[in-house]
């Protein structure tokens, strides 16, 4: 189980204005600023759960993952993974977790991935028979084939990512921290990796905590999501619940088969998109039966689809709203001070 209580991480960073004079001045007098990367974040994740970590760039997702993996020491608060404190780097814990970072590589550049695997086998002290069995399983699941014997520098980005995943999983970790594992990959490779993560989770009852810029990854893999913004946890729960809370209206998309006036469409719901004959309406949930009846009846539409609003749209609205509220409260405080 992963447990974070009031987890906080602050970084002290040096700030200076651009230009030579500012650079010279900074030699004598430094100005530091405290960046609150993670602020009082608390959550629990049970064994075998698949949890998505969402938030805009710089929200604190990667920092939180690094705190959970023991790479960073918390400024305050507490974190445990399977009962261990990660920052103390207990070998028992390190032998049962893994962190995959889409933008960093652990494969040895000049040698084939098989050499990195041999190194990891020695590091994690994996018995030969178990190592061979795991590698065979990973080779099958990830369709590695002969990739493991090609020098890493000759692999494509997608091939390298698959080999990275294998390197990270050879010791059969029970907890997977995946930080943008599909970044830069094409759609087919994204699907393959997504599918692999789900199967690994089911086969080994592994806990998965995933961050991704691709909402589809999170939607497809994670029933539960944590949303973090400016270091603070702003939502923890079911993905569908978040969608319902933020935007309960449905999206009704269809193709017109005859000319329909704008007024007629506006009466059914708010028009979000109209491109030629393709239309998307925003409709209040309780009015769906009536609207669908009208679309399929007198209006004779084709290709009718009823969907939840896209997650990207919801998050954009969520982060925008949070920022507006903060700006308003700061403005009110400033106004009160004068």
């Amino acid at each position: 189980m992963i447990r974070a209580d009031e987890l906080t991480k602050h970084f002290k960073v040096h700030r200076r204005k651009p230009g030579f004079a500012a650079a010279l001045a900074s030699v004598f007098r430094r100005r530091y600023e405290v960046v609150r990367a993670v602020e009082n974040v608390s959550f629990r994740i049970e064994r075998g759960e698949r949890v998505g970590f969402l938030g805009p760039n710089g929200a604190g997702k990667t920092t939180t993952l690094k705190l959970l993996a023991g790479l960073l020491h918390p400024t305050s608060g507490a974190v445990t993974v399977d009962g261990y404190v990660p920052s103390k780097r207990p070998p028992e814990l390190l032998g049962s977790i893994t962190l995959v970072m889409g933008q960093k590589s652990q494969l040895i550049w000049d040698l084939p991935p098989s050499e990195t695997y041999a190194m990891n086998r020695a590091i994690f002290d994996v018995p030969k028979a178990e190592f061979d069995a795991t590698l065979a399983e990973l080779t099958e699941l990830l369709e590695l084939g002969k990739l493991v014997d090609k020098p890493t520098r000759q692999l494509s980005l997608g091939e390298r990512m698959k080999c990275e995943l294998a390197a990270a999983l050879l010791h059969r970790p029970k907890t997977l921290f995946l930080d943008e594992p599909t970044i830069g990959l094409d759609v087919a490779m994204q699907l393959a990796i997504r599918d692999f993560v789900r199967r690994y989770n089911q086969r080994h009852e592994a806990t998965v905590l995933l961050t991704s810029h691709y909402m589809d990854d999170v939607v497809a893999l994670c029933p539960r999501i944590l949303v973090i913004d400016e270091g603070k946890l702003v939502h923890d729960g079911d993905l569908r619940q978040l969608v319902k809370t933020m935007d309960p209206d449905k999206r009704v998309s269809f193709t017109l088969t005859s000319e329909v006036g704008a007024d007629e469409l506006e009466r059914l719901g708010a028009v979000i998109l109209r491109e030629g004959t393709r239309v998307t309406l925003r409709v209040v949930e309780r009015e769906i039966p009536a609207v669908v009846g009208r679309l399929l009846g007198p209006l004779h539409v084709a290709d009718l689809a009823i969907e939840d609003p896209p997650l990207e749209e919801i998050l954009r609205a969520m982060f925008g709203k949070a920022r507006e509220e903060r700006a308003a409260s700061e403005a009110a405080e400033a106004g009160g001070a004068t």
Binding site: K66, A69, G70, L71, R89, P91, E92, L93, L94, G95, I97, T98, L99, M101, K104, S105, Q106, I123, F124
Partner: peptide, 18 residues
């Protein structure tokens, strides 16, 4: 410099020896 040292700290062996 590149942050790849993360992978050293993730291993269950002494980082200095590694």
């Amino acid at each position: 410099r590149t942050g790849a040292f993360d992978y050293v700290l993730l291993k269950p062996v002494d980082a200095q020896l590694l």
